[in-house]
Design a protein around this nucleic acid. Structure first.
Lengths: 150, 150
DNA sequence: GTTGTTGCAAAGCGTTTGCAGAAGA
DNA sequence: TCTTCTGCAAACGCTTTGCAACAAC
């Protein structure tokens, strides 16, 4: 049983952070953060992904708790949320000029700046060539935090 | 700036495109595309934004029609949809390095290849720096047609 | 024992869809 | 006329929340 391995490296900092705010360490919270820890950096999961991953193991955590815990872990700084704050799709005119559209988006306020970049076009073309694709369009989305929101 | 003409400049190409597919030019469709045209390139709106903007004028278009029309205009190539990879919120460990998940997607069959590119990371970082953003992540989406579908 | 947390189910919110009436071609 | 399109309202999927039982401290 994997439960015997109490050596989760995240337990201590998590517990400490929780107790500072009068919150409690629960198996559910530990399991969720531990999942991200095991997957390692750079892997991002949706709430549903987390739910599925935990179901594959022997641990079930309700979706409601997953949503609550993800928000908590983001607030505590353990996780980062990758998404436009005021989520939702945006539309804009497709100008015939640029088939090449690059956006710098603030994940807090949604502010968007456009920019162009030759190296990006080149890299997109190179990737297409390498896999035998005919290139149609490439779009670079850069997510970050703008000066006002920092 | 261009002189404002009484006839909307988008009417002709829109009508032509619609008729090619046996579709019809309606005031609603014209109003929506015209709104984007008046705002100009680079301005992006959500469906709700479009709804509000049209309510401010004297023209009301139902939200359902706006959603349908936005999708239509994207399919026809008049508008571009700015949304990050696969919709929905994603979470990842805070300690994560700036990921560069770059995708090469076939628009026919949906086949997806992942690749990495230093120049893209550099370009994303440069754009963030230039606008004073703290970089979190950059994603390059390259759309094309794969060898099998060609 | 006290109080924060969970799971369930119901509510919310943005988006999509079925349908009958309205309107382009 | 013949279809397509619109508006309404209901449906839908994802996320949040109220509440009673439960568990960490």
């Amino acid at each position: 049983m994997a439960t015997s391995s109490s050596s989760t490296p995240v337990q201590e900092p998590l517990q400490q952070g929780l107790h500072q705010d009068g919150r409690r360490l629960t198996p559910q919270r530990l399991r969720i953060l531990d999942l991200f820890e095991r997957l390692g950096s750079g892997r991002h999961l949706s709430a549903e992904d987390v739910h599925q991953q935990l179901l594959e193991g022997e641990a079930k955590v309700s979706l409601a708790t997953i949503y609550r815990t993800l928000r908590l872990l983001v607030d505590m700084g353990f996780l980062q949320e990758l998404e436009l704050s005021e989520a939702g799709r945006r539309f804009e005119l497709s100008s015939a000029d640029h088939g090449d559209h690059h956006h710098l988006v603030c994940i807090r306020c949604g502010r968007t700046e456009e920019f162009e970049s030759i190296p990006v076009i080149t890299a997109g073309q190179a990737a297409a060539d390498q896999h035998g694709f005919d290139l149609i369009e490439s779009t670079l989305n850069v997510r970050g935090i703008c000066p006002d929101c920092r």
